[in-house]
Design a protein around this nucleic acid. Structure first.
Lengths: 307, 307
DNA sequence: TCAAAAATCGACCTATTGGTCAAAAAAATA
DNA sequence: TATTTTTTTGACCAATAGGTCGATTTTTGA
């Protein structure tokens, strides 16, 4: 990522954590960074865009770090090491955690909310699979409960860890907490019924996933509608249009990366230039669906560039 | 409390939970409630005042409800019943919890922050004493750890409980969770060292308490300074002043309730009317300390009334 | 019944905010 | 060196926010 942007993101996070998102004006940001307002808007499309970038940057960094390989040894040893690493890195994420846990996550932007929600689910699922690996098959019926409790316990301790000033032994803490989790796991022995079941959780943690799938279908049918509309054209033109549509579909649905804006825009422009009213309205619908699809996938849109 | 005010508070919480504090303008509030802006400012001194009132109202209600007597039976049975009651009332506090847990607690006002922090500590201490009662003396060395985990687990489950639509068996959930806590408690058998010790926690949970004590001392010395200054006056006047000061001290420090503003103001006015420069500056210092003291005690100031 | 007090109204004010833009400076490219 | 592109500037803008205030209506209480 643009190095300059990273610097800005880190400085912004500091301010956000100190004063809160809403209370930090762009003027503040710009002064702290020693540049002008115009320059700010050269790097970020809006204040919300900055917030999203900040959240993305830290969240991604932290989750990746959390999920890093724990090295050699048994699964449990690795798990302990993963936790310990996370605890000892906590100071790096202090600002981020403070923002996330103790105060506000602005409701300003549904995109932000959705993104954080998804991250939450991602972490939870990671706990589930990791705990299954550590404790083997016996834990599986209760894995959601164990993951829920593990998550809760760790969150709570994290909350404490950065309120305390002195250093602490992250390794000992991790071992200590895992021993508690051992006890929780062991307590399920007697064929007890779990509180959380997969079916009860699926709508919660996979709400996003499902929504994305549905949007994908909607998008596909928008493509179909454009193809349909192309039938009304003369054969030569129809052929051109269909090829362009195919390319567009490939760009948007065929790859696992964010579609390249210039390709999408170029193809749309080309298609719009085919003078055909029926095509035009189908294209409007299509571009709307494409936008929704990208938003749902949390693909970062490039900051707006003047030309 | 003013019934009208309560209605307003509840309506406001709904809006805050839906749209977020910052995104809810006074215009929105006023429209939702069907009154005018002027009327709003008749009931609340400012938007922040409203927020504080809202937070206070719900927090107090919820904590009180949580800490309600659990009825008959062994301590553990009562504890389970307390938890179950809390779980089943959750829908009443949905808005509040959503605001507190999943998203924003606006950083707008240090008073708000301090208040919520204190509530947090209060709940934690409640867990500590309650767990000690339930599990007896053996748990005492680990009670802070157990409380921390209990708190974490319950928070996390609460978070889940109100994302789920269907009803659930609060009683079963409480019993289920307490069984896990049993296991955690049992796991400490082997004379293990706790992670959290009282001395490590005291600065955290009693930071407020200590600060309040210190402020009390500062206030007392401000009173002493005024008395000192009164010595320079002629005997008759000095006597009047000393009596007024004593009355003021009684009002502010002697009772366990918020001092009545009109008494404090009247006495200050009276004292200020004694033409004595040395007294005046001591009085300035005093009124400042009094304000700080009240703020620290979280005493709600009456909404400003026009006269 | 009537005057005093409380509650309500809504036009109005000021300050600030996020955001724009034409022009200038700096950097990159040829 | 000349020219194009990127980056930066800061005055400017419209919108909106929280908040005020004198006038008006409603309620209270004797």
């Amino acid at each position: 990522m643009d190095e300059r942007r990273v610097q800005f993101i880190e400085a912004a996070m500091k301010l956000f954590a100190e004063k809160g998102y809403h209370e930090t004006s762009i003027q503040d940001l710009v002064e702290a960074w020693g540049i002008s307002k115009g320059a700010f808007y050269h790097h970020f499309a809006s204040k919300e865009d900055l917030l999203l970038a900040v959240l993305r940057y830290y969240s991604e960094k932290m989750v990746a770090d959390f999920m890093a390989d724990g090295g050699e040894g048994t699964e449990k040893e690795r798990f302990v090491r993963q936790l310990a690493a996370h605890f000892s890195h906590i100071r790096e994420y202090k600002d981020f955690l403070r923002m996330m846990m103790s105060e506000q996550l602005p409701k300003v932007n549904p995109e932000v909310e959705r993104y954080m929600f998804r991250q939450h689910g991602r972490l939870f699922l990671w706990y589930c699979t990791r705990l299954a690996e550590v404790y083997g098959e016996e834990v599986c019926p209760y894995v959601y409960d164990v993951a829920m409790m593990t998550n809760g316990i760790i969150r709570q301790y994290l909350f404490y860890f950065f309120f305390r000033e002195e250093a602490f032994d992250a390794d000992a803490a991790a071992r200590f907490l895992v021993r508690r989790i051992d006890a929780i796991v062991a307590s399920f022995a007697a064929g007890e019924r779990p509180l959380l079941t997969e079916e009860a959780l699926v709508p919660w943690i996979e709400l996003e996933e499902r929504e994305r799938k549905r949007q994908r279908e909607r998008l596909a049918s928008a493509f179909a509608a454009v193809r349909e509309a192309a039938n009304g054209l003369d054969p030569k033109q129809a052929n051109d249009v269909l090829e362009a549509v195919a390319a567009l579909e490939e760009e948007v649905l065929g790859r696992n990366e964010p579609p390249r804006a210039y390709i999408v825009e170029a193809l749309l422009l080309y298609l719009r230039h085919q003078q055909a009213p029926r095509l035009a309205s189908a294209l409007d619908a299509l571009s709307q669906e494409m936008e929704a699809y990208q938003r749902l996938n949390g693909w970062e849109r490039e900051p707006w560039k003047k030309r």
